[in-house]
Design a protein around this nucleic acid. Structure first.
Lengths: 108, 108
DNA sequence: TATCTTTATCGTAATATTGCAATGAACGAA
DNA sequence: TTCGTTCATTGCAATATTACGATAAAGATA
């Protein structure tokens, strides 16, 4: 079937999964790391930096924009990308909340 | 082509992506949250708790075991699952490192 | 032994993702 | 206007993921 049954999960669970999914590809991790380092850049920079084709980078950028992690600002004939601080902090909080527990499993 | 070009990324980037990917499905988020709450449980508990079929839950559990997030301990004819504390902490550290920066983008 | 319970695996179908060539759109420069 | 630059979109092929019925494997129970 291949169709995720989102309706049986909470909004929050679906949101966390969506944010994690966007980090679930090394190209998007690399894009985020590069943007953390240089704060802002254009698509062409990332094509040179990462080594995937321009359409592929563009597609990854769109997915990152779709969940709100990136913003793009048109500047002449190029587009300046940077991280959306709100979503970036939302992700930090969500993962910290999910991963900040004590987990001493007794059985294993 | 559908084949991720892992070889052009660093070990660390691929590892982060792999850990994120496992949280990139709401069922696996729900499994992790349940295990955080109850510390340990068997597969059948999760089937009742989450509402997916037993083979589907088993498949998700396997992916979580594959990256080391879960451990399973055979106990009679059932399997007791719990969180692997080391990987859980590794994930916390990795995401904290990735998401703990200052990101004031100037262009957007 | 026969049966029940519990979990894993196989097989399959449907959908999703990844990647890129080709093309289009929009701006700047000559 | 014409050409070059930059990025998005389209279209396609290949691989990956999601989900579950059927079945197998293995310990528990009668």
């Amino acid at each position: 079937m291949g169709l995720t049954k989102s309706e049986i999960f909470s909004e929050k669970q679906n949101r966390i999964a969506g944010m994690a999914k966007v980090l679930g590809h090394p190209a998007r991790v690399a894009i985020l790391q590069h943007l953390i380092k240089v704060q802002e850049c254009i698509c062409g920079d990332l094509v040179g930096e990462i080594g995937l084709s321009q359409p592929t980078i563009s597609q990854h950028l769109r997915e990152m924009k779709n969940i709100g992690l990136l913003k793009g600002n048109i500047d002449g004939n190029s587009v300046c990308y940077c991280i959306d601080e709100n979503t970036y902090q939302e992700m930090r909080s969500a993962f910290e909340e999910l991963l900040g527990h004590s987990v001493g499993g007794a059985c294993c």
